[in-house]
Design a protein around this nucleic acid. Structure first.
Lengths: 191, 191
DNA sequence: CGAGGCCTTGACCGCGGTCAATGCCCGTGG
DNA sequence: CCACGGGCATTGACCGCGGTCAAGGCCTCG
């Protein structure tokens, strides 16, 4: 099977695009593979690429006072984008890393944006993607602001139970906005 | 002067649109005025309107455990939108309120979205607006997550000093994600 | 003038932070 | 094959930020 197929299914589900649009889009996509713990994009580079996870697990992280903070996890069929850099053209303070051996589709943003001129439906699709990511972030903001660490952990457990199995707890902790130590205590008191 | 002019200037600055697009857009815009503390949109309604502040001050707030939490302040030349409802079509848990006598431009979203079919440049503009709001929210998320209440207050002071003058401290406190009491202490120890 | 809203202040407390010690798992080399 | 070292997770001792509850001062407006 064409390894890029999952991306097309994912996109189509959000907003159908014409076959010509799809063909032009496919022309931009490159399938890449990365080994466990390999950096997909390093800190400091300005982000000009949109990634889509086909297999494996990825994350976005950055350094806060010398410590890694995980901002996002990507599982198969998730997009993974350093939006703050892609949309501002500023160098990103964040890195993208494969946490396991992974396959990703890489889509260079500049030619993609050029395609928007030609294919209105592609820009529509992209707009909807951004809207969804925006709403998702608004939710995360409310969670961080009003739930306790423990509530956030519980919520994560029932929204993405597989996450806890696959991902080192230290990454999970920083994703939840707490320390490894606190997460360990929360887990401890459930047993 | 046409009171809708500031909106056009604001939009044009982000992404120029053709005069025909502008004319169709103008056809949708309605100027409205609200008195101090008047509700512009109530909790529970599904959001189908985009607002732009011409004069006065507005805010978005919602109830958390019976207490008001302010999510956003809008000053002249700011947009004010309940994105979580507009983009999901779900009833909003949030309200929009004028904090002073205010003039706002109201743009109904459905006819606006219809115009996207006709005017590609308008959808482009709208996409860029959403992108910017998204990046802004990512920033807010990082602030909430990593700055102390005091640091967030200081940051607010030098980014929007006028805000403290105009807005009741209880709203400022909930916007910062803290209680009125804590904000008062923070302010107290600076004197 | 009195009532009510807003802000401040004091007393107290609990969540989640740091620091440090310990346990556990696993990969590597003698 | 075992010994060792390093990374990850857990646990204890301690602390400070920001929370709640309640009292008191100060405006504004009827």
């Amino acid at each position: 099977m064409n390894p890029i197929k999952p991306l097309l299914i994912f996109l189509h589900h959000l907003h159908p695009i014409s076959t010509e649009t799809e063909a032009d889009l496919l022309g931009l996509c490159r399938l890449k593979t990365y080994g466990k713990n390999e950096e997909i994009q390093a800190i400091g580079a300005t982000c000009r690429t949109i990634y889509f996870m086909v297999s494996g697990v990825g994350r976005i992280y950055y350094l806060k006072d010398g410590k890694e903070v995980t901002e996002y996890f990507a599982f198969p069929n998730d997009l993974i984008v350093r939006a703050e850099s892609l949309f501002t053209q500023l160098p990103s303070k964040k890195a993208i890393q494969a946490l396991e051996d992974s396959e990703v589709v890489a889509i260079p943003a500049d030619p993609l944006f050029k395609l928007f001129e030609k294919h209105h439906d592609l820009e529509r699709l992209f707009r909807l993607l951004v809207q969804n990511a925006y709403v998702e972030t608004l939710r995360r903001l409310e969670n961080i602001q009003f739930l306790t660490a423990e509530e956030r952990y519980e919520k994560l457990i029932d929204e993405k139970p597989e996450l806890i199995q696959k991902i080192p707890l230290k990454h999970v902790a920083s994703f939840l906005g707490i320390t490894q130590v606190s997460l360990s205590r929360i887990r401890g008191q459930k047993r």
